[in-house]
Design a protein around this nucleic acid. Sequence first.
DNA 1: TAGAAAAGAGACAGACCTGTCTCATCACAC
DNA 2: GTGTGATGAGACAGGTCTGTCTCTTTTCTA
Lengths: 199, 199
Amino acid sequence: MTPSSSSAKRQHVVDTAYALFKRNGFHATGVDRIIAEADIAKMTMYRHFPAKEELIVAVLQHRARRFERQLDRLMAEEATPRQKIATILDWHERWFRDSDFHGCLFAHALAEFGDPGHPVFQAVSRQKNGLRLRMQAILEGAMPRAQAQDAATALLMLIEGATLMAQMGEVDAAIGNARKAAAAILAGAGCLPGASNLQ
Amino acid sequence: MTPSSSSAKRQHVVDTAYALFKRNGFHATGVDRIIAEADIAKMTMYRHFPAKEELIVAVLQHRARRFERQLDRLMAEEATPRQKIATILDWHERWFRDSDFHGCLFAHALAEFGDPGHPVFQAVSRQKNGLRLRMQAILEGAMPRAQAQDAATALLMLIEGATLMAQMGEVDAAIGNARKAAAAILAGAGCLPGASNLQ
DNA sequence: TAGAAAAGAGACAGACCTGTCTCATCACAC
DNA sequence: GTGTGATGAGACAGGTCTGTCTCTTTTCTA
């Protein structure tokens, strides 16, 4: 029988795999390495995840949910669209400055699983779309729908690019200019007074 | 003896490896697959590239040089900073719409070789910095140095994010909003009249 | 406390990985 | 034509990969 999908062991495997994947990549991280680091038997892993690919998807889903929960909590404390977008950028700055920051695991997954039909690709797609739609919903509180959609797309691209630059060691330039550019984009959208406070 | 580094065979290996790396990733592409696809002997490859890692670096360098040459040629035909930036965005749109587009090989390399000391990481860093410095030099023809630097960083992040979105299937939204956001960023820098023509 | 579910331990299979080696063959320059 | 460097073909080593299997032990619950 498949163990319960909320088992503590299962979560331990996911956490261990996450740490290894983000540091060394997906293909470069072998199952043997994961079970050694997690200090579990190989069969325990394979009973929870019949294939490595399913473990990868589970890791991505877990990180996506965690991210969503964190933003949900932070967003609840902010009143205006401007503050909410600023808070999202703040979250990213804290992430970039984390000593264990290694870039975006979702972007990395896209690099290694480039087939649009692959479950990993789709998990990445869902996460990125989730953030885009979250920002779009926020911005709809300050501008028409069409403009909110465009601005959210631009902000997402900016954030993804900033994450890449941060991984290349340019954290200060990345986050600083992301804030500045976000302000310019929102000012360009024309409907968000006070947007320059993002900087 | 090591064969001449400008051999036709060597270039054939680089081209074949490029096609495989971009479709399947670096770790997932085995040496056996490369030599089979290139239809050469394994020793031929290993005489030109003593290790797979050196082949990867050679592929990245070749693509970076090719990119630089293309932009050099295109830039020579444009007069104003605004036109030059627009041409860089046009180049990216054509790339995104290529039927064999699979995202940015350099970003993918960063995903698989995340150690900043690794030669692959450094090759990626050089390429991204090259594009950023190119845009900075262009913008210095229209604004003060400090602003050009910031705007170039913002444009680079935007382009990287757009490349990611394009890989996720959203080519139209990516390039359209990248142009719009680039115009807003340049307008925000305040020194590039007519920047809205980017759209 | 008895029974069921979960986990541990480790051998094993079969494929694939990078990289080495040998020896035959080819092409081209002098 | 002869010699030299480049290439071809393929066996080979030694390691790693994912995934399977069996048997034992633990853990939890009813």
